[in-house]
Nucleic acid binder design. Structure first.
Lengths: 223, 223
DNA sequence: TCTTCGACGATCAGGATGCGCATGGGATCT
DNA sequence: AGATCCCATGCGCATCCTGATCGTCGAAGA
């Protein structure tokens, strides 16, 4: 799950980011409307957490711009204001939820999760390919009922590939799914590393990861 | 198991909450339709106990709103009214069960449990894994007929794991089931603590709790 | 068709990180 | 008074990622 946090107060933003990251979400931080626009132009998110007061304008501008291009990404507004008008106008502009400061980070986490749940509508069915089964609910991959021993990164990578089985996934695309911008210093060959590990653990499953030189990787069943 | 109790009569609400809490359920209390909506926007519940008479409207509104967004959470209606019409309309709106006041708290507890069992697709009342047997109604776990001496939290945690045996349960997921919003300041490592205690008490039962670093915990029978 | 070169990908080992476990102790409930 | 519950802290180790080296593919030229 990919989250954009738009908040100018550094400490607040980081606290939130740490919390959500622990919860398994990949977070990007934007400190202003401008930055937010940049991020949103480049990357799509599952949920946007949006502060109203920003140094270069109101957060509602970001929301408006988003909705103006028919982007339905769930938005959670943060506000120090107590005014009912502000809340109402935020909701009218297409915000999906709001939270007034100060708030319990636990509550924020829960709301973000709720928004995502509402949006994705509980699409948790088992994926199959070859002798391999991937169960999103159990967070596990099995072969003939035997559970594959995968680490967190390996599992999310496999999930990405399974959901796009047969399609060529560029290294950048996989990178986006695995890391957040905070992991900015992570090299691209980290992907190659996890591909290699996955390949080893997938031997005998009737599933292989093909390398498409210069293009990316592709998961497919062996004939 | 996480329960939302929507009831404006303070004493009644608390009595129910205490009863269910003792039975190992994590309860949140809402005193009005508005509060109920807030809770439901943020947290998903296993069962909602819903009074019909609320200060700011009818409980059925909450039910309607819930079903309107395709939320199938089991709802148990409480009503002082004796009218058959009310019961019928409640059931038509998607309530799963109802109880007329005054009621025996034991009956409420049993019905809540039944609703949850039905929803989660559990066949038998008793759950078995390895040499371990768990009885949700009696809140007791036995091994070869000998009762394991578990505390309330330990039992609740075991219940969660037994119901999802074989699935990896994230620490956050377990947290949601164990604690209510009133326990807001409880840290995440409380989970680790109870896992450790449970593990000790489960030695010899043919059941182990596996740690999946960064992912969560998984209960399974030893081969 | 064969060769050569360049670039991309695979692999390995080692160090940093942070997760999960254990212990002790204080607070709260029975 | 006793049990239960939960926090704080420190340690050990699985995981993660880097950096460098080796392998390999493919295009261009003869």
């Amino acid at each position: 799950m990919r989250i954009l946090i738009v908040e100018d107060a550094q400490d607040m933003a980081e606290a939130v980011a740490i919390r959500l990251t622990r919860a398994g979400m990949a977070c990007d931080l934007a400190g202003s409307c401008g930055e937010a626009h940049d991020f949103l132009a480049v990357q799509s998110y599952d949920v946007v957490v949006l502060d109203i007061n920003l140094p270069d304008g109101m957060g509602t501008e970001v929301l408006q711009a988003l909705r103006a291009r028919a982007d339905r990404t769930p938005v959670l507004m943060l506000t120090a204001l107590f005014s009912v008008d502000d809340r109402v106008s935020a909701l009218d502009l297409g915000a999906d939820d709001y939270l007034t400061k100060p708030f319990d980070p636990r509550e924020l986490e829960a709301r973000v999760r709720a928004l995502h749940r509402r949006e994705s509508g509980q699409k948790a069915e088992e994926l199959r390919l070859g002798a391999l089964r991937f169960n999103p609910a159990a967070m596990s991959a099995t072969r003939d009922g035997a559970r594959l021993d995968l680490t967190r990164r390996e599992l999310t990578l496999l999930a990405l590939l399974m959901r796009n089985a047969g399609k060529t996934m560029s290294k950048e695309r996989l990178y986006q799914g695995l890391f957040s911008f905070d992991d900015a210093d992570v090299g691209l060959n980290a992907i190659e590393l996890y591909i290699a590990r996955l390949r080893k653990k997938l031997t005998g499953t009737g599933v292989v990861i093909e390398t498409q030189r210069g293009l990316g990787y592709c998961l497919r069943a062996t004939p």
